[in-house]
Design a protein around this nucleic acid. Structure first.
Length: 471
RNA sequence: GCUCCUAUCGUCUAGAGGCCUAGGACGGAGCCCUCUCAAGGCUUAAACCCGGGUUCGAAUCCCGGUAGGAGCGCCA
């Protein structure tokens, strides 16, 4: 049994949120760092909102990021028998009891308390106490089961990130652990699952801190040792407001479409709320080796797309081109370009990576290697494919055509010699070529561009540019 | 309203009482380099929420404000 077992426990009511991804990452890193296990649990007890599509989307996101579970994922809906068994045991032991309050009754209770400026809570009217007379059971009401929370004393959550947090038991009411239809509720399932799965460290969003003392109390009632907790703060949008759809990309999988490399997104995420001195870039091994959960920030952080893109660029620039190639392939096809028959993708990655911060950008700028030009950028053409430029291209084309070898050094030499012979700067020659072959004034160095594009395509495009009528 | 949490450049952060004239990174501005776009190099502007303590000394410790956030469901 490893000393550390963590879990990521999303509820499948939507896509994998970027904040959830970071929580999963921290959970994963903590487990790896301590040579423990990282597990996945799908919290699908909300039958109304949970969908199979969402389950798939979550797996897809986790897969893409490489945060896969060390064991088969646990689905809560498959554990109902177990939950019922535990509830029956608690009923028998007297740590839980039936409550016959109707929803309307509870709503009234809450409204009254709010009006009196009290914290809304269950008043314990069905809570059995020695010598207390319980109300008469109303007919036809399916009772819920409530946990009998201690009335006195305090619960200390020794949070790995936030430090000790103290709650008074008198602040806590008797929460429902089973609904009228007998189905268990979230706070209860979590407790039973964490116990059964042998979770030693619960790493989760800090929107759960207020649930923690109740969960600890239930665990204690069950005679189990509570795990350690680490509540990670949420991720905010650039405007400091909770991240939501109106901020653009919140779903992890959208970041793939935006042109991110998964390892780059992970790197950005790990630095959002955590740091190791001044280091910005971490390989996965470094993350695992250096991750220290006690150094996670206590305050929420804002998602900064500019910096995320910068990190992505760093990865694009240094990654193995062979590793990036399939991603570029994916993006090219996404914009309707079939890379078959063109230059090797890895070679294009190498030529383009410096000037492309995202794969979307790389695909856009590399399209011309694989597809026929769909016209020229007008401004660039007007500037460089004028009469003067076309005359230059006509002459140069002949020289290139006569080249015995079509490789970068030969092309470089030919273009240089041509410019020199004309008494022109290289720019005067390279720019018209660029616009002619790439359709725009942006491309890798001219020798590489022509080499990658190939002899046939280059000469055809030069000819087309020369034949172009003056606008 | 009640409970709990948080607070360093615009953003992510370093800072564990003297090493702070508060460091790094993104972004911004400027310069250099240059066949385009970039990349790279250099320079630069920019922050300790406020008020009290404790201390010889506080960004750091304590208290109080203020501001933000989370939770208060037969949701998770």
């Amino acid at each position: 049994m490893p000393a550390v077992v963590t879990r990521f426990a999303p509820s499948p009511t939507g896509y994998l949120h970027i904040g959830g991804a970071r929580t999963a990452l921290f959970s994963y890193l903590y487990a790896r760092r301590h040579e423990g296990r990282y597990l996945l649990r799908i919290e699908d007890t909300d039958r109304e909102r949970s969908t199979e599509d969402a389950v798939r989307a979550i797996f897809e996101g986790l897969d893409w990021l490489g945060l896969v579970s060390d064991a088969e994922p646990v689905f809560q809906t498959q554990r109902y028998d177990r939950y019922r068994e535990v509830i029956d045991g608690m009923l028998e032991a007297g740590t839980a009891y039936h409550c016959y309050c109707s929803k309307e009754e509870l709503e009234q209770m809450r409204a009254g308390q709010m009006a009196r400026k009290e914290k809304p809570r269950y008043d314990g009217r069905w809570r059995p106490e020695p010598g207390k007379l319980l109300p008469e059971r109303p007919a036809g009401v399916q009772p819920v089961v409530r946990f009998k929370n201690p009335v006195a004393g305090e619960v200390v959550v020794d949070d790995l990130i936030k430090g000790a947090i103290v709650f008074q038991n008198e602040e806590l009411d008797d929460l429902i652990i089973a609904r009228g239809d007998g189905n268990p509720t979230y706070n209860f399932c979590v407790v039973v699952d964490d116990m059964d799965m042998g979770i030693t460290h619960v790493v989760r969003g800090d929107d759960h801190v207020n649930n923690t003392p109740r969960q600890i109390n239930i665990l204690k009632a069950l005679g189990a040792e509570p795990p350690a907790y680490a509540h990670v703060p949420m991720i905010l949008g650039a405007d400091g407001v909770k991240l939501s759809k109106r901020h653009g990309a919140v779903s992890v999988i959208e970041y793939r479409a935006l042109g991110f490399l998964p390892e780059a997104l992970l790197n950005y995420l790990v630095r959002l709320g955590w740091s190791h001195g001044d280091q910005e870039l971490f390989s996965r091994d470094e993350m695992i080796r250096m991750f220290d959960i006690s150094r996670v920030q206590k305050a929420p952080a804002r998602f900064d797309m500019e910096k995320a893109v910068w990190v992505n660029h760093q990865y694009l620039k240094s990654a193995d081109p062979l590793h990036v190639a399939p991603e570029l392939d994916w993006h090219l096809r996404r914009i309707g370009v079939d890379p078959a028959g063109g230059p090797a993708l890895a070679a294009v990655v190498e030529a383009q990576r410096e000037r492309c911060k995202t794969l979307v950008e790389m695909a856009e700028k590399s399209k011309f290697f694989y597809a026929e030009l769909d016209g020229y950028n007008e401004k660039d053409a007007a500037k460089h494919l004028n009469a003067e430029g076309r005359a230059l291209l006509a002459e140069l084309a002949a020289r290139l055509e006569a080249l015995p070898q079509w490789n970068a050094p030969a092309l470089q030499e030919a273009v240089h010699a041509f410019a020199e012979g004309k008494g022109l700067g290289l720019g005067k020659v390279a720019q018209p070529i660029r616009v002619a072959v790439a359709g725009m004034a942006i491309s890798p160095p001219i020798d590489q561009t022509l080499f990658l594009l190939g002899r046939e395509r280059t000469l055809a495009r030069l000819a087309a540019a020369v034949a172009r009528n003056n606008p």
